[in-house]
Write a protein that binds this DNA or RNA. Sequence first.
RNA 1: GGACCUGUGGUGCAGCCUGGAGUGCACGCCGGCCUGUCAAGCCGGAGGUCGCGGGUUCAAAUCCCGUCAGGUCCGCCA
Length: 615
Amino acid sequence: MSFTTDESLVPAGLRTAYCGALRTGDTGRTVSVCGWVARRREHGEHLAFVDLRDHTGIIQCVVDGARDLRSEQVLRVTGTVRPRPEGTANPALSTGEVELGECEVEVLSTAEPPPFSLDARSETDEAVRLRYRYLDLRTDRMQHNLRLRAQVNSALRRAMERQGFVEVETPMLWTPTPEGAREFAIPSRLQHGSFYVLPQSPQIAKQLLMVGGLDRYYQIARCMRDEDLRADRQFEFTQLDIEASFVGQAEVLGFVSEAVSEAAFAVTGEQQPEIVTMTWNQALDRFGTDKPDLRFGMELVDLGDAVAGSELNVFKAACVRAVRVPSAGEWPRSRLDALVERALELGAAGLVWMRVRAERVLESPVAKFLSEAHQRQIVAATYADPGDLVLVVAGERERTCKVLGQLRLDLGQPAVSERPLCFAWITEFPLFEGMDDDGHLVAAHHPFTMPHPDDLDLLETDPMAVRSQSYDLVLNGWELGSGSIRIHRADIQRRVFKALGVSDEDAESRFGFLLGAFRYGAPPHGGFAVGLDRFVALLAGEDNIREVIAYPKTQSGADLMSGAPRPLADRQLAELGIRVVPTGAPGRPGSTGSPRSLGSPGAAGSPGAPGPSGA
RNA sequence: GGACCUGUGGUGCAGCCUGGAGUGCACGCCGGCCUGUCAAGCCGGAGGUCGCGGGUUCAAAUCCCGUCAGGUCCGCCA
C-alpha cells in the first residue's frame, strides 16, 4: 500500500528530506522540505501549525506567524526535527511522532483557493475533478492509484524480460483494417484523401514480428478504439501485449500467469495461488458467463435429473437450472416479484422461486405441481437448507445459464475492492459466434485464431461446434484480456476465411501484407493482451478505470481539462485537404459567460454514415 | 441510436412529489480573537442567471416540453 521506494531515495535540489519520511530517528536534524500547504491551524499571531504535503505524506511544521500562508501554496520550509510534546502525537500520520520546529518559510509559489477540497474525506463531482485534474492528481487517491499503476508496469516488464521477451515499439500511425473496432482516422498531409489509423491493437504488427524472428515480443502498448465509452472502457487504453513463437496454449498461459502474478505480488505482497483454468462450456454451466467472479459461491445447479419426469410443462425444457440464494427464504413477495421481472428483462421465459421451509418443504407457486420426490430431489441437488431461496430458470441452455448467471451477480457479487484476487483462465471458446446479416459466420476472437486441433474436421460440416485455441483471462468477474494461438498455415487460414465468407480476393485486399508475409516462413505462434487499465483498477479497488488514468475522457469523449476535441483552424484543415460537413445543428450552445465553461465546442463530427474505413 | 439517474453560492447536500420572497445545513473563502492544534476552536461577514431555452400559472428551483453537460447501462467494443 505504501510506496517505500521514496524513502530510499536521496532528496536533492531545494530539499534535504521528504515530508512523509521524517521519524523520531531524525530528531535534531535541520532539514528543508518542499510541498503544498495541506492545512493550517492558527493560534494567534505567534503560533501556527502548517501541514506540509508532498507525495510521500504530511509533516506538521510549527510556524511563528503564518498570516499570509494559504491552502495549496508551495513552500520550502527549513526547520529542526523534534519530537512532539507529550500527548500531542498524531497516530493518523506516518510522521505523527515528530514535527518541524523553528521553521523558516519560503513561499515558492502562491495559490488561489482550490475549487474543491483535496481532503480524502470530501467527495467531489467527477466533472469538477476532471476539469481541474492537475489538482485532483494531488489527492491521496490519485497519487496512490498512479503509483500503483507504475509498480504494476514495472513488475510486468520484469516478468516479461525474465522470460526472454523483448520490448518492441510498433507504429501509432497504422493502416486501416476493415474489421474490428471503429478506428480513429488520421489524415495524410502529403497524400490528400488518404488516411492512417491509430491501432486498435498491435495485432498484425506483432504477428509480423514473429515472422521477423523476434521470437518473444512484448510491449506496454496504447490502443485506440472509437467505440462508446463505459466505466471500463476509454477511447485509448493500455495493454500488456505479448506474442511468442514455437509455443502452444499452455506456454502462453504460463507467460501471462507469471506476469500478472508478479504484478499482483508487487501490489499486495501476497504470493498468488496457481490460476484456475476452466473451459468456456464449464464457465457457462457453473457461472452462466464467460467471465466468472470466483470470489463467491452460488454456482448454478443443473436440475435436469432432479425434475426428470415432472408433469410441470416449464420443466420439460432443454435446460433446467437453479441458483441457491442463502438465507433469502424470508424475502417478501414484492422482492420475489422484482426478481421475476428482472429475469424476464434478461430474456428468460420466466422464473420460478422456491422458498425452502422447515423439513425442507418447498413453498412455491409451482409446489402443488411437483411431486414430493421431485421436491426432495430439487432440495438435494441445490444443497438448499431451510431459510434459503432457490431460483429456477428453464429454457434453451445458453440463455438459461446467462440469466441465472446475471441473477447470481445481482444477488451475490461483492464490491470490487473485496478480496481475494481470483484469476481464472477460460479456454476453448467457440471459434465462431453466430451469423452476420449476410449469413456469414462471425469470428468470436479474430479471423487468425487457430481452431482446436480435434475440431478441424468440423470446419465445413458443423462450424458452430468448432472450438478455438483462444482463451481469456478473468479477474473477479472482469475480462482482463484475451489471446489465441494463431493460424500460421495457409491451408487452414483459407478454410477459416471460407467459413467466414471471405473470398480469396477479399482476403488479399484486406490482409494482403500479413498473408504475404506468411508465405515466407511463419513460425507457429500465439499471444495475449492484458487490459492494464482494468487490471490496475481492480488492484486499486476502483470500479472505474478513469480512477487509474491520469487524464481520462468523459463518456461523451471530452477531455474536460484541455477542451478536446475542438474544431481545427481553417488553414490546418486546408493543409490536410479536409472539408468539414456541418452536422445540421445550426445553433451552437455558444460561449456562455463562464470562462471555465468548456462545454462542447461544436461537434464537427461525421454524420452517421458508414465511417471512413468502410471501404 | 436507445433507457435511466443527476444538475441549487467555490465544494457537498436538503428544498422539488404537494408552486407562494433564494429558505436551510455542513465545508471552504474573507475579517477579528486565540501559544499545542491536527478536518483546531469562538465571533462576524461576503458569496446565487436554482445548467440553458420555451411553456402552463396571478406566481416556477418546484409542474410540462425541448436542449446541454456529467454518470450508469443497452446497442457497439473482430
